[in-house]
Design a binder for these strands. Structure first.
Length: 818
RNA sequence: GCCCCUGUAGCCCAAUGGCAGAGGCAGACGACUUAAAAUCGUCCAAGUGUGGGUUCGACCCCCACCGGGGGCACCA
């Protein structure tokens, strides 16, 4: 009779023991073991951990624990991304400081992580809302400011009229506020930006280093987001105006086909061109109508083109032609130069506009297709240039080269690249974030708070009204806002905006190395030791913003001499989502699965195993398709092996049953390989096989006393230590070892035990299998071919025919081609 | 509309271009049991979305189409 395996009892039993042993405390910088830095994306502390966390942390844990077993000095830290709107909203509702809600949740999550047996180094915890942390956000902001990488400008930002606040791009979903579902509008505000566009080219080029190590999907998304375009700038003189207008185009070869110019309606240029003219009032009417249009309208496809003729003309530099200048909202003010030459024949948008406004269409690239003027379909492909002066007869590619150099020679243009990437707006008019460390002085202007006065702490929230009003709540903390200018001592005001929380997460991976450093954001020796991160694990939701921002910070800090590397995350694993019945879990959909319920029902190990076994890590796990009960059953089965082993710990395995030993070492080899290639589901399958083989050996094979049974069971325990730590620990103890199995060390494969006595070779005729035969793995090609020719089935099939060709790959197969 | 990923037993998933099945779930049967649960054992099932092509040989490589998922979407 076996005692029952009481998961909850076992969980309670091991937690204090692990606290005592602390098997995952990372070594110091002088640790002789090679280092590995495994990083899980840190959570936002909203409530308790959920199923998604459970999957992500289970996967990260397998990797971290594997490397510990393999003898690396592993750092696997955790912290909390603790600033953000939900805390503030909860605080408003509960009428208390956001830190209370935040730290309550952190404590809940920390307890859950401990119970979930995450192999975190609990000595390296950080909280981004801690002044000891956000002080360094401010310090980095100052460095950015010194380098001109932090600056202020006026621009139209996303504005939710209902929430009365600026929204980040990612908080605008299909033109609606993600929280209240009201239409988002634009509002012109003076805001702080980080100049990430300075790094556009390097962010793009350095992705070469990540090729094959990051998911291709993420690299593609980042490339699209950066959106490099190659083209040229061309200068057009303007009638009755001293200053010419520069336009950006990717098709300088179509310059002769430009029949009008369009400037962005909301650009300074449009305003300048129209001021004082007779169409000014008409323009203003149009401008107001565009401003009133919400993002939803703008996003609508097939939206008819609108615009207004500015009554002015530009001169085409290549042919001196006089072309009208229009203003429209289909040209963007903040991309390129905010002005374009319109070539309706070869650009669909320009054609749509030309047809709406009855403007001429001139074909300059000859294609096989119908005339765009009649078909309404622009021909944007390559072709032979016509109606284009010196370019006639050239291909588009050649024409681009020729016209660009001609313009350049005349000082009328130059090759130029553009990026879709915009500078990063970091100002937020909210309380629960890092105060921007700038003081506005009447005399001195913007003055950064000196480093030795950091952190600029948040004012006490109890005296503030945190409700969103469109201006930062910090502005109402008068005692806080009014300060003496650090430069002249005169009257000055603090900047009242707080930083986007993505700032916090753009360098937290550096801070983990030095959480106790009070005079620096990170200690150079520590960073040099641990960084870059060897393995980053997290959801694909952060494929663009967080990863791009972190890469930007790393490059900027590298340029400033603080870091000796340029890419923060060497490898990236994106785990899938945990879904239910085919769709994302949500309360409103009624398909929410609560992690705490699942843990209560099946235990931590079974849930971790289920997550890991469900499929490839990057695939979604549909909780309806998996069986935590099945996982629990398997763990029980594995655990019972340890109780059946009757040999003593430390016994020499070499005399053990050879067949089982071979199975064991083959399994060990395959498990290692699968774990290293992130095919954890396959690794689990191999452990299951080994458990099955061991069970059989005990019940109807060599018996429980055979050393091979102990060897197999120990390898099961060590393998399971990556996935099911409680079960593994119980097994290890039953097997007569001291805890912790997490530190047992990964067993070495004995290559002699990987060889097989016999393998099955197949004989094919024209690729069809005709016969099978068991042979020695050492059989040569010639021997195997001879065996094939002597094979009865082959002979019968062959008859008197002579093979045209025989392909032999010993010891696997012979294929006879007739 | 453009780009990317994906399609293998009822289900989740394996398979360096070489025997389509490793593992699990579900199901059936048997052993143990007074019975049930648990446990142990046996069994069941697809010819790889469709159509072409390359190859001695294709789940795997190429092309087209269909279904599913994702990203981008006035960026000149």
């Amino acid at each position: 009779m076996h005692e029952a395996y009481d998961v909850h009892h076992v969980q309670e039993k091991w937690l204090p023991i692990w606290d005592e042993i602390a098997p995952f405390r990372s070594g110091r910088t002088d640790d002789p073991r090679p280092k590995k830095y495994v990083l899980d994306m840190f959570p936002y502390p909203s409530g308790d951990l959920h199923m998604g966390h459970a999957e992500a942390y289970a996967l990260g844990d397998v990797i971290a624990r594997y490397w510990v077993q393999k003898g690396f000095n592993v750092m696997h830290p955790i912290g909390w991304d603790a600033f953000g709107l939900p805390a503030e909203n909860a605080a408003i509702k509960r009428n208390e400081d956001p830190s209370i809600w935040t730290y309550e949740n952190i404590n809940t999550q920390r307890a859950s992580m401990r119970r979930y047996a995450c192999s975190f180094d609990w000595d390296r915890v950080l909280y981004t809302c801690d002044p000891e942390y956000y002080k360094w956000n401010q310090w980095i902001f100052n460095r950015m400011y010194e380098k001109g990488l932090a600056y202020r400008k006026d621009s139209a930002v996303n504005w939710c009229p209902d929430c009365q606040t600026v929204l980040a791009n990612e908080q605008v979903v299909a033109g609606l506020c993600e929280r209240c579902d009201n239409a988002v509008t634009k509002k012109k505000l003076n805001q702080w930006y980080f100049k990430i566009t300075d790094y556009a080219e390097r962010l793009l080029a350095d992705m070469q280093q990540l090729e094959g190590k990051w998911p291709e999907k993420v690299l593609t998304m980042q490339r699209n987001w950066i959106g490099k375009s190659v083209g040229a700038e061309v200068t057009f003189e303007i009638e009755d105006r001293d200053k010419p207008v520069v336009i950006y185009t990717t098709r300088p070869d179509t310059l002769y086909g430009a029949t009008f110019m369009v400037v962005a309606v909301d650009s300074d240029l449009a305003r300048d061109l129209v001021t004082g003219t007779s169409v000014e009032s008409e323009f203003n009417k149009y401008f107001d109508s565009v401003k009133a249009a919400s993002d939803i309208d703008r996003l609508a496809t097939d939206r008819p083109k609108t615009g207004v003729f500015l009554g002015r003309h530009a001169i085409n530099p290549v042919n001196g032609e006089r072309i009208p200048i229009w203003a429209s909202d289909y040209v963007l003010a903040d991309y390129g130069t905010g002005a374009i030459m319109a070539v309706p024949a070869h650009d669909q948008r320009d054609l749509d506009f030309a047809r709406a406004m009855k403007l001429p269409v001139r074909v300059v690239v000859e294609t096989e297709e119908e005339d765009p003027a009649t078909s309404g379909v622009a021909t944007d492909g390559d072709g032979k240039l016509i109606n284009s002066g010196s370019l006639n007869g050239l291909s588009s590619a050649d024409a681009i080269k020729k016209i660009t150099s001609e313009l350049e020679a005349k000082g009328l243009g130059k090759a130029s690249n553009n990026y879709r990437l915009r500078d990063w707006l970091i100002s937020r008019q909210r309380y629960w974030g890092t105060p921007i460390p700038i003081i506005h002085c009447e005399k001195c202007g913007e003055v950064p708070v000196p480093d030795d006065q950091l952190p600029v702490r948040l004012p006490d929230s109890s005296t503030l009204d945190l409700k969103p009003k469109g201006t930062s709540p910090l502005a109402t903390a008068l005692d806080w806002v009014n300060v003496a200018c650090p430069k002249c001592g005169g009257k000055a005001l603090r900047d009242t905006d707080t930083m986007d929380t993505f700032v916090d997460s753009s360098w937290y991976f550096l801070r983990y190395t030095s959480v106790n450093s009070h005079d620096k954001p990170f200690v150079k020796e520590e960073v040099d030791t641990w960084l870059p991160v060897d393995q980053y694990v997290g959801g694909v939701t952060h494929a663009i913003l967080h990863l791009l921002y972190s890469r930007f910070f790393t490059k900027a800090l590298n340029d400033m001499g603080y870091l000796n590397f340029t890419e923060p995350f060497t490898r990236l694993l994106n785990q899938g989502m945990v879904i239910m019945d085919g769709s994302a879990m949500s309360k409103s959909r009624g398909n929410l699965v609560r992690l705490s319920d699942e843990l209560e029902k099946h235990g931590v190990d079974a849930i971790r195993l289920t997550m890991v076994f469900a499929g490839p890590p990057e695939d979604d796990v549909d909780w309806a398709d998996v069986s935590p009960a099945g996982s629990a059953k398997f763990l029980n089965r594995a655990w019972r092996l340890a109780g059946d082993v009757t040999s003593a710990a430390g016994i020499d395995f070499s005399s053990g049953d050879l067949a089982l030993r071979k199975v064991t070492h083959r399994a060990l080899h395959d498990i290692s390989f699968a774990v290293e290639s992130f095919r954890f589901n396959v690794a689990v399958a191999r452990v299951m096989e080994l458990v099955n083989a061991t069970r059989k050996a005990i019940d109807s094979g060599c018996g429980p006393a055979d050393p091979a049974v102990r060897e197999a069971t120990e390898i099961v325990a060590i393998s399971l230590s990556l996935i099911a730590p409680y079960t593994a620990e119980e097994m290890w103890e039953k097997l007569g070892h001291k805890p912790s199995v997490a530190l047992a060390g990964w067993p070495t494969v004995n290559p002699d035990l990987l060889t097989q006595d016999s393998v099955t070779a197949i004989f094919q005729i024209n690729g069809k299998i005709k016969s099978r035969i068991d042979i020695s793995p050492n059989t040569t090609d010639a021997e195997l071919e001879a065996m094939a020719m002597a094979d009865e089935a082959v002979k019968a099939e062959l008859g008197s025919q002579t093979p045209k060709k025989v392909i032999t790959k010993a010891p696997k197969f012979v294929n006879i081609v007739l």
